[in-house]
Amino acid sequence: MAARAKRPEDVGSKEYDDSGELIRSHHKQAFEYISVALRIDEDDKAHKEQAVQWYKKGISELEKGIAIEIMGQGEKCERAKRLQAKMTTNLIMAKDRLELLAKVPSAS
């Protein structure tokens, strides 16, 4: 018989170990994308519409990181949860910024 899917308890313990790491990897990607967006956005002379794509990429990474369920308890999980909370804050702020940029007729 073919190997069956992992039993829930196996998957559960694996997720418990990796969720923090997974969240960090999405954070890292999001941080890089949004940093690029901010560098463009902070430059008055830059074409702001170029920042839009980077914000969108960053937002999608933040969403992936926030969607990860943290199982269990303890200091490690608390840290991961705090990181997710900060990512949520930035998700909202980046979306607001994106909305504002979308409204502005591209000033060139």
Partner: peptide, 24 residues
């Protein structure tokens, strides 16, 4: 290293918040 990494990540998220707030 995991917990150090998470602390660094948190600090980086804070940085983004500050920069986004300035642009708001």
């Amino acid at each position: 290293t995991g917990s150090v990494g998470t602390s660094v990540a948190s600090a980086e998220q804070d940085e983004l918040s500050q920069r986004l707030a300035k642009l708001r």
